[in-house]
């Protein structure tokens, strides 16, 4: 088990530690062909320890929103507030997990995990037991001296999760982290993330285009409309934890998938439209059932 490092020890932590507030976030990109309106007046209030998934059609600005929260990209107007402070650059309480594992190929696993400590000029020695625990937890013990090219895609992404958790950030931002993995590895990684999240109580903001993944993991699923990205609807996912892969085939889960997928397609939440869609699909299902009964 990985113990979250006691928060009372770190002076930076307070009541507001781990909270994210997005206020009127609007973003225009300048490109060669003109200006692109990526985000329009996004407002989000994320509590400490909450697991938020952001979904939407491709190009809707979900990654843009995440990168604005990270402080790596600016907003055109509006602001992001972390722990009561306005973000104007990368912040130490944030850890990022990228689309690809993004390990440095010239460093072995251990050196990759120590990379954040080197940049932050923090001695990694006191963190070694924690790193060892995390490596064991994700099944990478004994691989410390291996280089990224010697590891599978799933192992690389697990190493990047260890790298992110090793310095104990309060907020973890994940930008379509498992998009490049096959479906089975993806399921495995999702369960791992859920487990780590339940143990450490981090605030996680998770961008994905996979609706089932979002429902499996999140407390709330934020659906963005097509460009310019606005919040189409925020869905509360009150399914019990820990959630399993089998549950993704359960009626309440599938109901959520219908609602969220329809909202993505329509660009707004229309319960009547969802109900119509559900009736249609139920009709198809009955047809298949009749076919089976007839044989």
């Amino acid at each position: 088990m990985v113990q979250a490092v006691s928060r009372s020890e770190s002076p930076a932590s307070s009541q507001t530690s781990g909270t994210v507030l997005v206020e009127h976030a609007t973003k225009y990109y300048k490109t060669n062909t003109g200006s692109v309106h990526a985000l329009e007046d996004i407002n989000l209030d994320i509590k400490k320890g909450e697991f938020i998934a952001i979904v939407g059609p491709s190009g809707c600005g979900k990654s843009t929103l995440l990168w604005a929260i990270s402080g790596l990209h600016d907003l055109t107007s509006g602001r992001v507030v972390l722990d009561g402070q306005t973000v104007d650059g990368p912040r130490p309480e944030i850890g990022m997990i990228f689309q690809e594992a993004n390990l440095l190929p010239w460093r072995n696993l251990q050196q990759n995990i120590e990379f954040p400590f080197e940049i932050k000029k923090v001695d990694s020695k006191p963190f070694q037991p924690r790193i060892q625990e995390l490596l064991a937890e994700v099944g990478l013990s004994g691989f410390e001296t291996k280089f990224p090219r010697e590891l599978s895609g799933g192992m690389q992404q697990r190493a990047s999760i260890v790298r992110c958790l090793s310095f104990d950030p309060e907020i973890i931002l994940m930008d379509e982290p498992f998009g490049a993995l096959d479906a089975f590895t993806r399921d495995e990684m999702n369960l791992l993330i859920q487990k780590l999240w339940m143990e450490t109580g981090k605030t996680i903001i998770f961008v994905t285009h996979n609706v089932a993944e979002a429902i499996l993991l999140a407390d709330r699923v934020v659906v963005l409309s097509p460009r310019p990205g606005r919040i189409a609807h925020i869905f509360d996912i009150d399914l019990p934890r820990p959630r399993t892969i089998e549950e993704t085939y359960s009626p309440p889960f599938i109901e959520k998938i219908f609602e969220i997928k329809d909202t993505i397609i329509q660009g707004e939440y229309r319960p009547d439209h969802v109900a119509e869609l559900t009736r249609q699909v139920a009709g198809v299902a009955r047809g298949i059932e009749d076919q089976f009964d007839g044989k």
């Binding site: 990270s70 790596l72 990368p90 010239w106 940049i119």
Partner: peptide, 27 residues
């Protein structure tokens, strides 16, 4: 760009980005 963003997300300085990312990548 992803590796530069990684280093910057930890608050790397321009010099650190050069010595720890750009130079090894170019080596």
């Amino acid at each position: 760009l992803a590796k530069l963003a990684l280093a910057r997300s930890y608050g790397a300085t321009t010099f650190q980005i050069f010595t720890k990312v750009r130079f090894p990548l170019a080596l």
